[in-house]
Design a protein around this nucleic acid. Sequence first.
DNA 1: CCTGCAAATGTTATAATGTTTCAAATTTTG
DNA 2: CAAAATTTGAAACATTATAACATTTGCAGG
Lengths: 163, 163
Amino acid sequence: MSARAIPYRPHNHDACVSQALTDARAICQRQNARLTAIRERVLELIWQSHKPLGAYDVLAELSSDGHNAAPPTVYRALDFLQQHGLVHRIASLNAFIGCTHAGENHTGMFLICRVCGNVLELTAPSVSTEVRKAAAEEGFRAENTTLEIAGLCPRCQAEPDHD
Amino acid sequence: MSARAIPYRPHNHDACVSQALTDARAICQRQNARLTAIRERVLELIWQSHKPLGAYDVLAELSSDGHNAAPPTVYRALDFLQQHGLVHRIASLNAFIGCTHAGENHTGMFLICRVCGNVLELTAPSVSTEVRKAAAEEGFRAENTTLEIAGLCPRCQAEPDHD
DNA sequence: CCTGCAAATGTTATAATGTTTCAAATTTTG
DNA sequence: CAAAATTTGAAACATTATAACATTTGCAGG
Ligand SMILES: [Zn+2]
Ligand SMILES: [Zn+2]
Ligand SMILES: [Zn+2]
Ligand SMILES: [Zn+2]
């Protein structure tokens, strides 16, 4: 896996997409999971940008593909992709984003720009460590961490009206 | 403010509620905010346990009070209470819980037991520090942190079938 | 190749959560 | 008190997610 693009800055995003799809195929093969046409298409749609996409946005895109889809189709695909660590749900936005650390066994931390809407996924081991420690001090067995930071990305701090 | 009760363990919960209401009155007075009857009642309902309550649950309770309320009534009250730091929204559950650090200017971290449903709110400065650091390393200006840990509370680790 | 099973998808309906809008009532201010 | 601002009421609507059951597809064993 090559160096990761920074969503906030212009980059060859097609490369992001094709890398994600390639990785996904490999991961599913390794896990004996079936990355069917719909699932792959949903993953591709989720990856169309670094901004989280709502389930109904995915649905709309599928429809404009000519695919006559209903909500369960999308939610099922998204469940599958989450299960296999290919997308994340951003709880604070009710939306989904492609995982940039697929196959890496990580706890994501998401930096969400409230202006441009782009999201950067980080793996911050020091944060995870402190979280685990804090939970352990309470005798709590942590299983799943939701960590989403809303704020301003570097670009939007500089020029507030950007896409 | 006295020592905080641990939600997972039996305690005199009426004391939690009356403490919360007393604190809320003081805080609103200090901030020149109007803790109206509805708002106070919603806060009280939220505090009826240490389990997060959905907006529509609050609505149902209001209705059984005889109060003929509609969704906006509840959401407005909850907005107010959030604004003034009296309740938190748990994004991963679409539900609300009373703040146990009201007036303290804090970033909450929530330990959510997936079995009993109780939630413990912590202030973990070391976590906040690491989060800020990680964000800063990316040049990101963090404004709002959502940090929710799902797992098993001490009690439910010991005896899995408890309330 | 067929048959039968399991996984995946289609389809319809419905549940759960949250917002917009405008009107009426209440509180505050001068 | 009168004007202005805040709060609440009420109805409709929008968005997000799931339930239930029928149908199709992929695949293993015979
Ligand atoms: Zn990209
Ligand atoms: Zn990830
Ligand atoms: Zn209590
Ligand atoms: Zn709090």
